[in-house]
Write a protein that binds this DNA or RNA. Structure first.
Length: 825
RNA sequence: GCGAGAGUGGCGGAAUUGGCAGACGCACUGGACUUAGGAUCCAGCGGGCAACCGUAGGGGUUCAAAUCCCCUCUCUCGCACCA
């Protein structure tokens, strides 16, 4: 009898798959397509368990969908530009390109050894010129449409990575990649106008039922849509100070105004007044303050009077204008109306500077006094001190207040977003060059389409100098102006690597297409992605950028759909000893080691079985061993009985009335049903549990020596079913055993089994008998026994009789085929 | 602070709709086979001698609640002076 040797089995199967190009996808209008995508990895060196998990989940679905008859696209590639390649170059003197391509070779081999069913013919690496040249093309198109622009503004800067970061790449004031504190720097940078799509990106969150609520909330939160009103407060010189507020119901309580230090009026208002020196000093001090410190909620609220006043357009009251450290120039108009009675920040500021507090909302049944308040009242209630709106509920009054403001031309309805444009300039080498030329005479000139690609030069010394290494490469940046022919300079910044990942899913659909950016016909065949699988860490990065980019490409006529990802599954992290697996924590389990010790099938099985895909997975070496043992058990189940089963023809129903035999038939069909339903809703862990139960059931059945022909045929049917169900999860061992069984003319991987309704529902059902909702007994009865009969059966049970002694039956609830509940007093 | 999600045996986790709580696996205990067992097989495995009690805690709805509602606590994640 042959031993289970995963290495031999896996190598053999993988060779066969590769030789036969089994996972190659071709566009075929006659078949229903299914585009399954897992987030592509960064080629950092080796894959980690998070990858194994992500791709194991994906592979189950890919194989399952193929077995269900779908034309499946399941591609893989490399998010190959980025900082670590440069760091390796600096640390070890290896060129980023060779470091990257070596890693890709190694990791591709790892993925192949895990047996994932990718169409490797469509593999892409984003650092290939053939890829990024079309990104440059897209950049130029966006430039023409005004969707990419250059401006000077304060940007996030990581000292350690020596580059600018997008807002989405700053996590709690620190660099998302290295954790270094992020500084603010005034720089001229390129931006993608993602804010033009803010509203649509926000509103479509409600049209993505296939996405996890959590991710949609994070996106909505990030985009930050808020409804309010812009109100013009007249100033003494006849101009207006415009503010944005979501709380027009507190307008009557405004006692002062606050400008951001960066507000254009901050300095000009006090010019040539007594307050000038104080304001100048305050503005200088505030601007110099570290942004993350300034944004700290606990930072004390400070400000200075500008010497000027505005008039409250509703009350006619004169209120002073301050410059304050807690107002953000980036949000709204950079100026606020302050209502200390109903906003805690304003309250603190008012207390500090002795400003009045006017109450405009009274809590239900309350009697707040401005003099005795210890904090702002931010709840709802009845409006007071509010002229015509007195007595109304503040929330309900808001629409009519805004109507009133609009009518009087004091204000207008406005929607404000938190989202900022996406800064994509990176002062780094290993990225796609931005196809722009600066000419003293002609200004900013896009590289002509016929001059694309702007190839990233390989002969560049990579080092950390605070600017792009390309800025030191004269052959690169010295060019002729495409317009006037005079000497000009190339842009030396490269694009954020998130630009590459914003459209890679489109490139897969037509990876070999080089005559243009994308082959619309093939794009439209495959798009949208039916199922996307990846980590939740990209909820507001990649997943938001991609939605934006896809819209732009849709408008450029390159894609038919507006939303790229129909369904999204965010898998949990891999945890060990209470912490995320990571090199720095020293708790990593190396996939190579797992393959070496147990084989790919075991590694995959454990990742799938130990927890449901969307939850964190707690790594457990003993659990891995259990999975290996299970595969051994399956192996033995078949191999030990091969001789007696090889020439038997499978049946999937009992050929005699033997109770055990009938039961086995039921088990087969029930397992098919449950596994199908569970895989369909991504309950992969319970699918595997069901299959384990099937194995246990088969063992139990064959425990009694089954000599009868009919019984043997059913065993054969059970084993075939088992292997087919196992195939998406552990394809190597399943296929190997299938071959050993010698199933003529039937392919394991093309047929997902169907269950027979007849063997899913038994003729008898177990009825639970409760008294006052507590389980007292059970009994087996014929399916669909009528209610009255059920009642009398229940009353007749010994245990029930005992419990009923001396009690009065109030009523009896009968749930057909399920339970009887007797209510007694 | 705001928003979202979660809390079930020693552990990972089951329980489409309110209807047998703890499937499946790990760990553990006992036994069988064995020169040996870290292999395999069999049995047991929430607590309690029991009646009973048990899904973070408290209240409610219901014939019936892990599941629905309210309050409290704890944890995780995201955003955080966003006006």
């Amino acid at each position: 009898m042959s031993q289970y040797n995963p290495h031999v089995v896996e190598e053999k199967r993988q060779q066969i798959w590769e030789q036969n190009h089994l996972f190659r996808a071709t566009e075929d209008e006659s078949k229903e397509k299914y585009y399954l995508l897992e987030m592509f990895p960064y080629p950092s060196g080796k894959i980690h368990m998070g990858h194994v998990r992500n791709y194991s989940i994906g592979d189950v679905i890919a194989r399952y969908k193929r077995m269900r008859g779908f034309n499946v696209l399941h591609p893989m590639g490399w998010d190959a530009f980025g900082m670590p390649a440069e760091n390796a170059a600096i640390d070890r003197g290896i060129h980023p390109a060779s470091w990257t391509y070596d890693n890709i070779d190694y990791m591709r081999n790892q993925l192949k050894r895990l047996g994932f069913s990718y169409d490797w013919d469509r593999e892409i690496a984003t650092c290939d010129v053939a890829y990024y040249r079309w990104e440059q093309w897209m950049f130029l198109k966006m430039f023409e449409k005004g969707l990419v622009y250059r401006k000077s503004s304060p940007v996030n800067y990581c000292q350690k990575c020596q580059t600018v970061l997008a807002n989405e790449q700053v996590e709690g004031g620190a660099c998302w990649r290295c954790g270094e504190e992020v500084l603010q720097k005034e720089l001229t940078q390129w931006f993608f106008a993602i804010t033009k799509y803010a509203d649509e990106l926000y509103e479509y969150c409600d049209k993505l039922p296939g996405w996890p609520e959590r991710v949609l909330n994070m996106q909505k939160n990030w985009i930050g849509k808020s409804f309010g009103v812009e109100v013009d407060f007249p100033m003494e010189d006849g101009t207006f100070l415009t503010i944005f507020t979501t709380r027009p119901d507190t307008l009557f309580g405004v006692t002062f105004m606050v400008l951001a230090a960066e507000h254009p009026l901050a300095l000009s208002l006090s010019r040539n007044t007594d307050q000038e020196a104080a304001v100048n000093a305050f503005v200088a001090k505030t601007k110099a303050m570290d942004k993350s410190f300034r944004a700290e909620i606990t930072t004390e609220k400070e400000g200075v009077f500008t010497g000027k006043y505005v008039t409250n357009p509703l009350t006619g009251t004169k209120v002073p204008i301050f410059v304050g450290n807690f107002v953000l120039m980036e949000y709204g108009t950079g100026a606020i109306m302050a209502v200390p009675a109903h906003d805690q920040r304003d309250f603190e500021f008012a207390k500090e500077y002795g400003l009045p507090v006017i109450l405009t909302i009274m809590p239900e049944g309350g009697a707040l006094q401005p003099e005795t308040m210890e904090g702002a009242y931010e709840g709802d209630g009845k409006m007071v001190n509010s002229g015509p709106f007195n007595g109304r509920n503040n929330r309900e009054a808001i629409p009519s207040i805004i109507d009133y403001l609009e009518e009087k031309k004091i204000g207008k309805r406005t929607v404000n977003f938190r989202l900022r444009d996406w800064g994509i300039s990176r002062q780094r080498y290993w990225g796609a060059p931005i196809p722009i030329i600066y000419c003293d005479a002609c200004g900013t000139v896009p590289v002509p389409y016929e001059d694309l690609p702007v190839v990233l030069p390989l002969k560049v010394e990579v080092k950390m100098v605070g600017k792009s290494p390309l800025a030191e490469c004269a052959e690169f940046y010295n060019v002729e102006c495409p317009v006037c022919g005079k000497p000009a300079k190339r842009e030396t910044d490269t694009m954020d690597t998130f630009v590459e990942s914003s459209w890679y899913f489109l490139k897969y659909t037509c990876a070999d297409h080089n005559e243009g950016p994308l082959d619309r016909k093939r794009v439209d065949y495959w798009m949208p992605v039916d199922q996307y699988i990846g980590g939740v860490e990209h909820a507001v990065l990649h997943l938001l950028y991609s939605r934006f980019f896809n819209r732009v490409l849709n408008e450029l006529g390159l894609v038919g759909v507006r939303e790229p990802f129909e369904n999204l599954l965010t898998q949990g992290m891999v945890i060990k000893d209470g912490a995320k697996m990571s090199k720095s924590k020293g708790n990593v389990v190396d996939p190579d080691y797992m393959i070496e010790k147990y084989g790919a099938d075991t590694a995959r099985l454990f990742c799938l079985f130990a927890s449901p895909p969307e939850k964190d997975l707690d790594w457990n070496d003993k659990g891995v061993e259990g999975c290996f043992r299970f595969l051994l058990r399956v192996w033995r189940l078949i191999v030990e009985r091969l001789d007696g089963l090889r020439d038997v023809e499978a049946v999937f129903e009992p050929l005699n009335d033997d109770a055990d035999t009938v039961q086995l038939a039921f088990l087969i069909h029930k397992t098919i049903k449950q596994v199908t339903e569970d895989v369909d809703r991504f309950h992969l862990n319970t699918s595997i549990a069901r299959i384990m139960e099937l194995v246990n059931g088969i063992y139990k059945y064959i425990d009694k020596d089954r000599k009868e022909e009919g019984d043997r045929r059913l065993i054969r049917g059970a084993l075939e079913t088992l292997l087919v169900l196992l195939f998406p999860f552990v394809p190597h061992i399943a296929e190997e055993l299938w071959e050993m069984l010698g199933v003529d003319g039937k392919s394991l991987s093309t047929q997902w089994p169907r269950y027979n309704e007849k063997y899913v529902q038994e003729d008898t059902v177990l009825i639970v008998v409760q008294i006052n909702g507590k389980l007292r007994d059970r009994c087996e009865v014929q399916r669909d026994t009528d209610q009255e009969q059920l009642k009398s059966i229940a009353y007749d049970l010994e245990k029930i009789k005992k419990h009923l002694e001396g009690k009065t039956i109030v009523k009896t609830i009968v749930v057909p085929n399920k339970l009887v509940n007797i209510v007694v007093k």
